[in-house]
Amino acid sequence: MGLWTWLTDRDGSKARRVEERVKHYEFLVTAASVAKIDLVCRDDLWAFTEKQTRALQEEAFQPPSEDLIIRDEGMVTVPLSGTNLAAVLEAMFHLDTAPDTSRVARAQAVQVYISITSVLGLVSPMSDRDNPLIPIVIDDRIRRRQPDPDGPATATP
């Protein structure tokens, strides 16, 4: 991008992209400082995340496949080091910003990215050993209401 393009950016979109990248870099630095955190999600979402991160961040990503904890209802717990967490963030950011990413892949990447960054805002130096680590949980579910005798069951928001 040339200086003239930068100076004539009337709607501020380029400035927003720069701010977005600066904030993303801050998240990467914070993620890299985490010793270990658990990511809890569906097994297919983890398969997507692992595949994309492996492809886009192969030098930084060491998948913890042997340490996966299989939970009920298709959920897994994945222990991630800070380096792996940063690699996942970078890969998900890339998928969100790449023009050739499908809508479904972008939606999955954004969900993982937002879930991780919302927890990164809570990171502080570990001075209290009795303070448990907060896992990153991606598990939105649609709850069923009690069946209506006059009609089909409906979902609650």
Rank of each mutant, 00 (worst) to 15 (best):
L3D: 11
W4H: 12
D9I: 04
R10D: 10
S13A: 06
S13N: 06
R16A: 14
V18G: 12
E19C: 00
R21T: 00
R21C: 00
R21F: 00
V22M: 10
H24E: 09
H24Y: 08
F27L: 11
L28K: 06
A32I: 04
A32K: 10
V34Y: 14
A35Y: 08
I37Q: 05
L39Y: 06
L39D: 02
V40K: 14
V40Y: 09
C41I: 03
R42C: 10
D43V: 13
D44G: 05
D44L: 09
A47V: 12
F48K: 03
F48N: 00
T49H: 03
T49P: 03
T49W: 01
E50G: 05
Q52I: 15
T53Q: 03
L56A: 12
E58W: 09
E59W: 07
E59H: 08
F61V: 04
F61D: 01
Q62I: 07
Q62Y: 13
Q62H: 12
P64A: 09
S65M: 12
D67I: 01
D67A: 11
D67W: 05
D72V: 02
G74K: 04
V76R: 02
P79L: 04
P79C: 06
T83L: 13
N84D: 13
A87F: 06
A87H: 06
A87K: 08
A91M: 05
F93Q: 08
F93A: 07
D96G: 13
A98H: 06
P99I: 09
T101H: 02
R106K: 15
A109H: 03
V110R: 08
Q111T: 13
Y113T: 01
I116T: 03
I116Y: 03
S118F: 00
V119Q: 00
G121Y: 10
L122I: 01
S124C: 03
P125Y: 09
R129D: 08
R129S: 06
N131A: 13
L133K: 08
L133A: 10
I134N: 10
I136V: 15
I138Y: 14
D139A: 10
D139Y: 05
D140H: 09
R145W: 03
P147D: 06
D148I: 05
D150V: 07
D150H: 04
G151R: 06
G151S: 09
T154C: 04
T156W: 00
